[in-house]
Amino acid sequence: MTEPLVFNVIQLGSFPTTRSLARDGRNSLEEMLAGKTRVDLTIDFTNVKAMTISFADEFLGKFLSTFDASSHEMTIKVAGLNTENAEAVTICLERRETQVAVLNEDGTLTLVGASLLTDTFNAALELGEFKANDLAKSLDISPQNANNRLKRLAAVGALRKSRSTGAAHGGKEFSYRAVTASVPEADALSTDVPFARA
């Protein structure tokens, strides 16, 4: 079982601007996730009209750079980006050389940010649940290369990494599944820590 959670960025303002506000928001987000595993997190920017790139970097860029989603078997996606905010997210993630799965208005998922892993993410979306060897075959790359790519995508929550049952020879084997496009209704959420501005 996984738990859907949504962090609504609009609670930080329609024009979130400063790094200090972003730090408070990031702390609030991390507090919401504390002690949880197997969460499907949606960071929702709906109704945020324009955020600065400084805010995007301090809130989202730093969160993705410091939070290891794979150790919590967590997926992360960003939703509700307008054109301007999508640009802010892309710029800050490219600078931090990281990426995030973005749910587009048409319901498709795109990997945004540093572009090296785009093909890997698209292959993962097509494969459904898969193992590293499946990806290696699909992309015609070595299993080690596939593992390295999957590790990076799992760290930013673009796919969930779970220990596989019935691993051969008692060794460690993991299965992967890309983040899903579904977003829960607001009233279906079990947790949504309200943000209190300092």
Partner: peptide
Amino acid sequence: AGPAVARACNELLDN
């Protein structure tokens, strides 16, 4: 243009 210019202005405030 509004959101882009608003973003530019607010970068100045953050700075």
